[in-house]
Amino acid sequence: MTNHLLSIEELGADGIREVLQLSHTFVEVSARAIPRVPALRGKTLAWLFYEDSTRTRLSFETAAKRLSADTMNFSVGSSSVNKGESLRDTVETISAMGVDCIVVRHGSSGVPWRIREWTDASVINAGDGWHQHPTQALLDCFTIEQRLGPLDGRHVAIVGDIKHSRVARSNVEAFTALGADVTLVGPRTLLPPSLDGWPCKVSHDLDAVVPSADVVYLLRMQNERMNEALVPSMREYSMGYGMTMERVGALADHALVMHPGPMNRGVEIAPEVADLDRAVMVDQVRNGVAVRMAVLYLLLGSGVELPVEGV
């Protein structure tokens, strides 16, 4: 039995709770003077990153080291991107070296599912196209529950470029699986053409949503989208959908501001908002290591079959 983490949907509500519960153990481990346990000694993990990533790869790397696992960095030339055959060859080569887990990021949706067919190793999706980024969703759930208690009944507003965001897709699934209400907020051009089957509400007016939000989750406004003329200008976007001090004033006292990073200060978030105590980006990064340790231990060490739903 090989375990994988490909999407929040496949992990299911029970699987999410299992990861979150176990993450507390690794928060404690990470806080020790010697933040390392021997749990995954002898296991080898390979990073297969076809897209740039600093924080996610570093976070996984730190998580693996704190579990005493060995890591292999496979630098992927951009030339082999999207060539099905060479991707398969790469995966088979890595597998032949005897890795226990492949952590993959790829620009095309669905790639981790293909990789799963080509290897006996566990596969972790560290982001595939616009599709899924499950460990980000898990660390966000953990961070919210650490600050606010159970997500059940909470209201989360996800603001910005929903259309191109794998974070939005994974987070909507994870937040709603744990019982939260989610509102997507953004201009029409940045929302997916169809929201059929998305278990959430939609709004184009951030000011109407802010007062009832327990969490305002800001997505990165990607400069490259400007070329597609999806928003008139960054300034205009910022006025309509940026988290300003004015909007912070309309938030409930306990409400959190979150961002998956990297932030564009002055675009989706005002510089002074990012430095408030309620802006928990540093917690997100810190918890990211613990949550990824929990995922790695569950998949590779625990011997526990992850609950799988909706497959």
Partner: peptide, 22 residues
């Protein structure tokens, strides 16, 4: 203390930490 992560039978049978070490 929860010793699960230090056990020598990880991989041989299910081993899950039970509670946070303090």
């Amino acid at each position: 203390i929860d010793v699960a992560l230090y056990r020598d039978d990880i991989g041989l049978r299910p081993v899950m930490p039970e509670a946070v070490t303090h």
